[in-house]
Amino acid sequence: MEFLADYASFLAKTVTLVVAIIVVLVFIAALRGKGRRRTAGQMQVTKLNDFYKGLRERLEQSLLGKDALKALRKQQGKAQKLEKKAAEVKPRVYVLDFDGDIKASATESMRHEITALLSVATDKDEVVLRLESGGGMVHSYGLASSQLARIRQAGIPLTICIDKVAASGGYMMACIGDRIISAPFAILGSIGVVAQLPNVNRLLKKHDIDFEVLTAGEYKRTLTVFGENTEKGREKFQQDLDITHDLFKNFVARYRPQLSIDEVATGEVWLGMAALDKQLVDELKTSDEYLSEKAKSADVFHLHFAQRKSLQERVGLAASGSVDHLLTRWWSRLTQQRFL
């Protein structure tokens, strides 16, 4: 017991020291950053041709003998010289990534990436968006879709690649592409609208707790968490959902006129192979396969606008990420959930 007490005391002192150091660092960073002009972030550009070339050369170096590798490099050097002499201007492919959460937070970076590429891209080029999203808030994904529509309006070919999921708001974004390419087992569809909230009014009444909801305007509040919901309020709420669903359907039908919209706008999801039959996608292929093929005939550039974050934000994100990972891990252990 004495050992445990000493260890607990040591642990408490260590944690206190670490916290104190972090507080001091944050305070120093705040002082240094005060008065400085803060930039929004910076554009990072990576040529994927070089990345693919590096992968191939590393493998060749491991597989081939010294003489064979030397002969291959000589042959490749001659081919490169011939390409330079031809002076052929290759088309460009601009690659963007969108990993969507419920608020479509990635829109903030994507809007800058699109603004940048629109300043240099032509109709001979192509934009490829690697999209992954299960959807989220209507207005957030509406804005993300509007950003992609800028590419279509500029007359630049837009290809959407889906390796895992593009459902609901994610498919709202995907349908804007001139072409949609999906992995065979990616999840697509969910062209529907959902809203849910708990109501604890009966629990409050049971414990003699009143909750007043005062509004100006008949439909300022239709459904509430604490107040008593009415049938009229439910009908209005459902009406709003139906209107949003109609707008969603019309939006998808505008960009994918080949769809039988009433058949697919049921809120269901399909795997890539079934989605191809329903014309939700145009081709089955992974983004890796598509881009590696493009790299043979075009210059492929990956664009990423990195948002600038202060030290306080970075420390906060790291802490919240650790807590989130820990909670998710223990929840999965408790529930023993399994997904295919």
Rank of each mutant, 00 (worst) to 15 (best):
M43C: 02
M43I: 05
M43N: 00
Q44R: 08
Q44S: 09
Q44P: 05
V45T: 06
V45S: 10
T46R: 07
T46I: 07
T46E: 06
K47H: 10
K47G: 12
K47E: 13
L48S: 05
L48E: 02
L48Y: 02
N49I: 02
N49M: 02
F51D: 13
F51R: 14
F51W: 14
Y52K: 04
Y52W: 07
Y52T: 01
K53V: 09
K53A: 15
K53C: 12
G54F: 11
G54Q: 14
L55Y: 13
L55V: 07
L55Q: 15
L55D: 15
L55A: 12
R56S: 11
E57R: 03
E57H: 08
E57P: 05
R58H: 13
R58I: 02
L59K: 14
L59Q: 13
L59G: 11
L59C: 07
E60V: 13
Q61T: 11
Q61M: 10
Q61P: 07
S62T: 10
S62M: 09
S62I: 08
S62F: 15
L63W: 08
L63I: 07
L63A: 04
L63V: 03
L64C: 03
L64K: 05
L64N: 02
G65D: 01
G65F: 04
G65V: 03
G65S: 04
G65T: 01
K66A: 09
D67H: 11
D67S: 10
A68K: 09
A68N: 03
A68L: 00
L69C: 01
L69M: 00
K70R: 09
A71S: 10
A71V: 04
A71L: 09
L72N: 06
L72S: 04
L72P: 02
L72C: 05
R73Y: 11
K74V: 03
K74M: 07
K74L: 06
K74P: 04
Q75K: 14
Q75M: 10
Q75A: 08
Q76A: 05
Q76N: 10
Q76W: 11
Q76P: 07
G77N: 14
G77Y: 15
G77F: 15
G77W: 15
K78M: 13
K78L: 09
K78Y: 14
A79Y: 06
A79C: 08
A79S: 02
A79G: 08
A79R: 01
A79F: 07
Q80D: 12
Q80E: 13
Q80L: 11
Q80C: 08
K81M: 12
L82T: 00
L82W: 07
L82N: 00
E83G: 03
E83I: 02
K84P: 00
K84T: 07
A86G: 00
A86H: 04
A87C: 02
A87L: 01
